[in-house]
Amino acid sequence: MTLTLFTFHGTVFTALKTVGDIRMRARKLALQVGLVTAVLALIFLIWTQVDSGDGKSLVAMIVAVVALVAALAAIQVGREGWSFAFSGVTIVAAVAMLFLSLFPNVMPSSLNADWSLTVTNASSSPYTLKIMTWCAGIATPIVLLYQGWTYWVFRKRIGTRHIAAEAAH
């Protein structure tokens, strides 16, 4: 399921970033891979929900399913930007669902439930977490900013006609 979901995301990205023949082929492939993903995702997510889900994970699951259907619909009508956004939401929601259904465990023990690692017993000391929060709070926005800038610089679509013969390898 993760294989097809990320492949779907990748084909939508390709359609979003290219022009011409490649774009059309990527769209077609995205639709095919997306349909397979939808089937696998439904099975996998419902299985997880029934097995160990709760209210919160159910919400995440619904978000994931709706976003995946929306991504498929968007690529069907050629709206690659929307499709990419929705497939991104699907990935985030599916990961959120997995961890919500685990919570508070992060690593359940199969031998004894008391030996499971939880968010509290596996964490660092409050002092470490405090330092980490400060560092991450300051550094992450800066990193996001300059990484966003690289995406902005390389934002335009390209096609085979942009590639000079000498660079085609």
């Binding site: 022009v19 709206r79 690659e80 930007g81 934002r155 335009k156």
Partner: peptide, 11 residues
């Protein structure tokens, strides 16, 4: 605009 129509082509 970018989410709706996707990025423009390189010119």
């Amino acid at each position: 605009k970018y989410v709706k129509a996707g990025p423009p082509e390189l010119t």
